[in-house]
Design a binder for these strands. Structure first.
Lengths: 254, 254
DNA sequence: AAAATAATATCCGTATACATTTACCTATTG
DNA sequence: CAATAGGTAAATGTATACGGATATTATTTT
């Protein structure tokens, strides 16, 4: 069948099997909003699937199967895979196809070390640069987080927690550091998800957030840096403990 | 012309216009050595061209032109570009083609902040983990660096300096952090190159390296972390000063 | 029966053809 | 003369076809 014949729609409306509207280029520094290509859509879609666990670490990504599933040719599929490969979210084993990245525990520990450093940097900058509005926004989101905790809603807690951290990056008025941090968060995401609901973690998170906000409000960059860094480090410790405690079969640490 | 007819050689010997032998997959966590594809070769080649200045920041990367120039079809060219896009070395402006990434001064400053953190982390770990052999290797390379300085050979100095830092990452016994640091070094590389030969920088570098090594040998992680972090920060400061001092036309900060 | 070799099938890498969008240029009108 | 609109050309995005490599399975031999 011919290229265009296959496509039901050629305009921008209702583009594919899955809906993802146009997006600003996120990975690079470009600001301009551009038409999302099928390749871009698929990249984002796959990323989302990896992050929310629909694609488990180690799972195979078959080009043909993805083509069929999303009604695309192999070209955009391959390009999406190339992008995710470069980011490190998926990996290739020679000619045995590509798989969702399988992280070893040492690798995860290192990632959290870096994550802690980056978050610390953001907090440090936020302590110097955050506007009153931004500080207030963090407090407000934190209130939401408390509510989610009190309601015993871990799913919401997870989402709002991300919002809190996004606000922190914003308050730091950075571009590159925030981007780098978010990218790393994505890369760990598949694992992080599996350990969110650890006993005591939510309560710990709340206390640590308060410490971060207080340091920022006090205008103490070093304290803020340490608070944010410790916060991430604690999460990392708990996560690696959790993974280590799993039975070897489910351990995921290859 | 048909696919295979076009290729002069189908075996591994003498594959393309430019020679890059097979390489272990570098960007991802994969260990297995695999056959380098044309796409991989082109990616590395383009990266090298960007790093050594043959492709200047902002310069256009035309798919067709690259195809012709390297005797490839557009497919591997596009895949190579996709990879570099995901890393952030190049950027796309909608449909106006792809260009070598143009960094603003604030972005460069942020990158050096991150770089300083990462190098600090490596030094900290190296202070705890470095074997006597690794410490000796650093001293040995440092001697080479001194020689290059005394010989007034900045090109060699630049290369040996990279070796020193590579040894530091190795001594830290990390994978992810080192990989991340090297990737960042690449991303700044195009700019860094243009400011290597700043007056006093080489001498400063030597002194700072000694401080790092002494801290590592003393087994003082915190001191090593600070020494390495400061070292990178100083380089960054000098680099941004240099760029700022350029006439606006050459400023490169868009 | 087990191991090794050969054959086949599947999936990856590359080339090319085709469609679509955007930018630039030209022409026309105010 | 300038500005806007339309058309054309060039380059990007997508589809498909083809060659090759590797893994798996079956068959043969020891």
């Amino acid at each position: 069948m011919r290229a265009t014949k296959a496509r039901p729609v050629t305009s921008n409306a209702g583009r594919g099997a899955f809906e993802l509207n146009q997006d600003a280029v996120r990975i690079s520094n470009v600001v301009a909003t551009r038409q999302a290509t099928r390749s871009d859509e698929l990249r984002d879609h796959l990323e989302e699937m990896i992050l929310d666990g629909r694609l488990a670490p180690g799972e195979r990504l078959d080009e043909m199967e993805l083509s069929r599933r999303f009604g695309l040719s192999r070209t955009p599929v391959r390009e999406a895979i190339k992008s995710l490969l470069a980011i490190g979210l998926i990996e290739t084993r020679g000619r045995q196809g590509t798989h969702v990245a399988l992280l070893s525990i040492p690798a995860i520990i290192e990632m959290f070390d870096v994550m802690a450093s980056l978050e610390g940097l953001c907090a440090k900058l936020a302590a110097r640069r955050a506007t009153p509005t931004e500080r207030a926004a963090m407090r407000a989101v934190h209130e939401e987080l408390v509510k989610a905790y009190e309601a015993g809603d871990p799913v919401n807690f997870y989402k709002i927690n991300q919002q809190f951290h996004d606000l922190l990056y914003e308050a730091a008025h950075t571009h590159f550091i925030a981007e780098q941090t978010i990218q790393l968060r994505r890369r760990i995401g598949a694992y992080r998800l599996r350990a969110t609901y650890q006993p005591g973690r939510m309560l710990g998170t709340l206390a640590e957030h308060v410490r971060i906000m207080d340091s920022i409000d006090a205008g103490d960059p070093d304290a803020a840096q340490k608070a944010a860094s410790d916060h991430v480090q604690l999460l990392g410790d708990q996560l690696t403990d959790f993974i280590s405690s799993l039975p070897p079969r489910l351990n995921l640490s290859q």
